[in-house]
Design a protein around this nucleic acid. Structure first.
Lengths: 231, 231, 231, 231
DNA sequence: TATGAATGAGAGTTCATTCAT
DNA sequence: AATGAATGAACTCTCATTCAT
């Protein structure tokens, strides 16, 4: 709880500062209680301000929730995407992009919690999602770029049927592979969030490497061991 | 609408019958509006009974939602699981178990809608999930059995690193592979539900086959072509 | 205050009964505080029920206000209009219709209070007014009928310019005269509501008779004296 | 919109100037939205100042509304009253005083809009009305003076019962006649505001002349024709 | 068994007013 | 003189739950 003591002196903040504080508070409430249980009064209490202050700075609760997700996205992926786009080696870029998804930190766990809640909340409101989709899908867009670079450079090769039948070199479709990986990582993160025993972030990450090894033919060398341990 | 005609005499039903009718009505409302927008009044109206009748038979709305998911699970997977367990050929059993996930029918779409909504709603209430986990995870449990049979029979082989480096025969862990597939299928179904362009059930199913080809070495013959088409 | 004591036992009423009780309570609040100061909680308190009960029976506060005006209209004018339409003598019918407007009773004062408030509140929402206009304008419609009967029978004659210049028999337009009288009575009632000194209902009524004497040539015999007394 | 350009430097104004600007803005908002929908923020936005500035100059929103009506009254009636009091001929003076009430201009329509809204709003607050009554009733007070002059000069004569029975010369009560006309004009203006079909300002004015012809015996010559046309 | 009127806490939102700057 | 961030009470409306019938 960051909530100010009752009767605390009224402190003025510039709007962008106060907005940021409120969004931060809302993020904390969402992480603790979930999007569905995040109300105006919870946010205000967490931010240590009155409800009036919250509605003064935001037109609606939905606007706050959207801001939280946008903030979360920028904070979580912003630096990563920049670094990845600057990395010349596609294989290394791929590692830099995927590894943070299942880092073993509280920040990662909170990220997935916000993410999964938000998607379900907006699933029935596609018009809301559309407005934010572009800003939110930065990770996936970056992944597409990385895959394309690797495919063009010839370091990624389609392994879709590797070991099953003798296919020649199939062309890689970056959009498809990116979507597959996004779906897979989302699904795995959801399972983790539900507390499946033995499914840690480390294990999840090894699964991603295995998946990419099949899809793009990249070696899953460094952490090869972890992928095979029993759950 | 299943709602009874207005003014129709409401017949007395035995509790289990009335409960089933209400759960059926609740399922319809969830499919139409989503779990988050399913209220007591909606359920009662859909069932053609009063709100009092609903609360007479159920202790809370949450209980109804749980029942819906249990019913959905039994209905969707019940016959499949029995047939799969009776199928001697593990490869055929695997096909029988996975194919229905992304059949191109309204029933399948409704199933995923209920499923994804429920998990997110329930993610914050692990005690609820635990009570129902066993009954809900029948598909996954069946998958574990099938994989174990195939592994024991030697028809499934670890293809985790197939085509990447020359690994010898790694042991298959049925629980792990089942969990992976469950996560993947959930993630893909969520993407479909959000209307990703080009991502149809047919495409999704081909992705599952590809995934299993890598994980278990089973040939993805029948529908091999679809998996490679551009999204 | 009709409000029930706190903790009073929950009493069930049939919907139409409860609705009527709530409308009655809303009427009392409007009379006391005005339409603009009539809120959900005031109505509930006055009716001795919870706010939930009010919203259970009415979809919105606006619906209640409309019901109050409709009730008020029917109660105030219903019997009068029937009697007037049954009265064969147009002059007598006219007296029966106009006299109640400024009867010296609390009911009449309340009526004008509700009436004036409602019209102003609704003036900016013509679509609301339209729905209720027909039911509300029963008095004016009845007046039109009476004037037409009297004009047809030749007992009313245009006195628009009587005493000013020698006009022959001008045709009477019932709609116009009715509208004039409605406007005049509304205006006078508004002045009374604002507590103009010396302006009583009795005086106001004499003004109506004088007005009609000029417009329709009916003698203002009975109360002729009062019209000339100094305010 | 009178609102200042965004980002424009806000000049310091002397209090009476700023007050006048705010009252002017409030008038515009009232005309556009009605008294009931005129809030502090609307006024501030319209005036191009902050809410703080508005409350710095005015103790409450009600005070602003009162000022608007006082301003409106002075502006609408001020010059008229002066001219009327300077006009030696009572009949001509009467014409000069009544004609502007239903002139066919936007200004007139705005005036009645403000006027009717205000009266209903303050009807429940007699203490407010009292404070402003004197300043607001300037028109009525002037009318009283004109009638008295005309009566004293013998050019107005009581026509209360003209054409009905042969009364001798009844004494005219200027206060009563003025109040009657005020009530009538208010009532008719309210009907116009509600959009009664066919009821234009021109027709309304002819009604006023007819009314005064009866009450004071003045000929309704100039526009005599319009008073009789069918609505 | 079944009903549905009644409840009241809690939701988001509005808004006149306060006051530190 | 002017600002505008901050306040909190009050608003309408929703809804799962209770319980007398």
């Amino acid at each position: 709880m960051t909530a100010a003591a009752p009767g605390a002196p009224r402190v003025r903040q510039r709007p962008e500062v106060r907005r940021a504080m409120i969004v931060e508070a809302a993020r904390a409430v969402i992480v603790r209680n979930g999007v569905g249980a995040t109300g105006l009064r919870d946010i205000a209490a967490e931010a240590g301000v009155s409800v009036g202050t919250v509605t003064y700075h935001f037109g609606s609760v939905a606007e706050i929730l959207n801001e939280v997700v946008v903030l979360e996205t920028e904070r979580f992926y912003g630096a990563i995407v920049i670094a990845v786009d600057a990395e010349p080696d596609p294989v290394e870029a791929l590692r830099m992009l995927v590894a943070p998804l299942f880092g073993d930190t509280e920040q990662v766990r909170q990220h997935w919690r916000i993410w999964s809640d938000y998607w379900t909340a907006v699933a029935r409101r596609p018009e809301v999602a559309a407005e934010y989709a572009e800003r939110i899908r930065v990770w996936e867009a970056c992944l597409v770029r990385v895959i394309r670079r690797g495919a063009d450079a010839g370091v990624f090769r389609s392994g879709a049927d590797a070991g099953v039948f003798r296919s020649g070199a199939l062309p890689i479709d970056p959009d498809t592979v990116a979507l597959k990986l996004a779906a897979y990582s989302d699904g795995v993160a959801t399972q983790i969030a539900q507390g499946v025993p033995g499914l840690t972030n480390t294990v999840a990450l090894s699964w991603m490497w295995t998946f990419l090894a099949h899809e793009l033919g990249v070696p899953a060398v460094e952490i090869a061991g972890t992928g095979h341990q029993h759950l």
